[in-house]
């Protein structure tokens, strides 16, 4: 699934990072605990999280993830935007809950 399609499915808005609409993504990881992300997310996955702290972006960069989506319309902190810009990691915000986001993306063919 392309990053662009994910954006449409989640009615999300990109708020920071490089635009990479054509980026192909196959897997997603839904988590708020960063150790969980580090332990279980595979490189190239999409991270769906409710944690809007800069740590979410740093962890995603460390785990070589493809992009991050903040759920439930949570506004990223300023430091978080800066961290995303620095690493180039595409960062999105959706109004949908984590549950609804996972459901829609699973339905659309993403796995995790």
């Amino acid at each position: 699934m392309r990053l662009q399609d994910i954006k449409v499915q989640l009615e999300a808005e990109q708020v920071a990072g490089s635009p990479r609409p054509e980026l192909e993504i196959k897997e997603a990881c839904a988590a708020d605990l960063m150790s969980d992300v580090l332990a279980s997310a595979r490189p190239g996955s999409l991270l769906l999280t409710g944690l809007t702290h800069p740590q979410a972006v740093r962890v995603a960069a460390l785990a070589s993830l493809a992009a991050v989506v903040f759920v439930q319309g949570k506004e990223p902190l300023r430091d978080t935007l800066v961290a995303a810009e620095e690493s180039g990691l595409p960062l999105f915000v959706t109004q949908l809950s984590l549950f609804e986001s996972c459901g829609r993306l699973y339905q659309a063919g993403l796995r995790g």
Binding site: S35, L51, H53, Q55, A56
Partner: peptide, 11 residues
């Protein structure tokens, strides 16, 4: 804040 789940050393 999403930390302290007791997984750090295991990771």
């Amino acid at each position: 804040m999403g930390f302290g789940a007791g997984m750090g050393l295991n990771n």
